[in-house]
Simulated scan of single mutants.
Amino acid sequence: MPSPSVCVCVPTYDERESLPRTVAALRRAVPEADLLVIDDNSPDGTGAVAEEIAGRDPHVRVLHRPGKAGLGPAYVAGFRWALAQGYDVVAQMDADGSHRPEDLPRLLSALSGADAVLGSRWVPGGEARDWPWRREVLSRTANHYVRLALQLPLGDATGGFRAFRRHALERVDLDGVQCEGYCFQVDVARRLLAAGLRVVEVPIVFLDRELGTSKMSGRIVREALLRVTGWALEPLLGKDGRDADRGPRRQGSVRPAVSASTR
């Protein structure tokens, strides 16, 4: 069987320093994959840097957006582009160096037994290395709340290092995904499970960024808290998990984390 075609979506906003390093490492790790840089008109000229790289490497494409609209819309735009181009597998990762490209082959390999694979910091074998303790506490607390509120059996529902088979993204209903910040990751995860898809978590090492500045803000945290709470309250407000034209939704399965060395 021919190898599946892979597109890796990387959203950027003011990442001109880190992007060349991330692209080079990704091309070494998965040389057969294509890379889509999704730039939200970065003031620092990241889009121009991406175009320079694409001019030298036919595996790199650039999707320019008119302005900063948030992480979620950027990923939705990238996913739509990749699906329209006919890729079999769509992956996502950050441009700031916090996701190690050398971990991507393990995520892609795990798709042999799953519809979607989530890179997880908070399952055995995973970790967040050199991260400020406040950020780690925030991430662990957010994931604990997601598990309790939404009954999602995931160790890391907020992580952004993932890989999907195309049919999984086609089942997610991208039109309904409205989140701007990292709660986009939670929304996609819950939609995968609601669609009855098989999800696997693979341990990864998450690194604190060395270049640029974090985009995390109080507004992003508030959006996530309000969205997750709203989803949790839907059954109490009369939304019982039924689609008018499909009947009851099926709950997908989460397989045990794939154990592998992350060192």
Results as ranks from 00 to 15, higher is better:
M93H: 06
A95I: 00
E102I: 12
L107V: 10
A110D: 01
G97V: 02
E102F: 12
P101V: 04
D115H: 07
D115V: 08
L118T: 01
S112A: 15
A116G: 07
L108N: 09
H99C: 15
L111M: 09
Q92V: 13
R100E: 13
P101K: 10
G113S: 00
G113I: 05
L104F: 14
R106N: 10
H99A: 13
D94P: 09
A91N: 03
R100K: 14
G97S: 05
D94L: 12
S98F: 07
V117W: 05
S98Q: 12
L111Q: 08
L108R: 07
A114I: 06
L118Y: 11
A116T: 05
A110L: 10
M93D: 09
S120Y: 08
A114D: 00
V117T: 04
Q92N: 14
D115Q: 02
V117N: 01
D115T: 06
S109Q: 15
S120C: 13
H99I: 11
L118W: 09
W122A: 13
G119L: 01
A116Y: 00
D115N: 09
S112W: 09
S120L: 04
S112M: 02
L111C: 01
P101S: 12
A110Y: 04
G113M: 00
S109N: 13
G119F: 12
D96C: 13
D115G: 00
D96L: 01
R106I: 02
L108W: 03
L104H: 03
S120W: 05
E102Q: 15
P101E: 12
D103S: 04
W122T: 13
V117Y: 00
A95C: 11
V117Q: 09
A116R: 00
S112P: 02
D115Y: 04
L104G: 06
S98H: 03
S98T: 15
G113W: 02
L111I: 00
G97C: 10
R100A: 15
D103W: 08
S112E: 15
S109K: 13
G113L: 06
A91W: 00
W122K: 04
R121N: 14
L108G: 06
G119N: 00
D96A: 11
M93V: 12
D103I: 04
A91D: 09
R106T: 13
R106Q: 14
G97N: 06
G97W: 06
L118S: 05
P101C: 11
L107W: 01
D103H: 05
L111R: 08
G119M: 05
S112Q: 14
M93N: 10
L107H: 00
A110W: 03
R121Y: 10
L107G: 01
A91C: 15
P101Q: 10
P105S: 11
L108Y: 00
P101Y: 07
E102A: 15
D103K: 07
V117I: 11
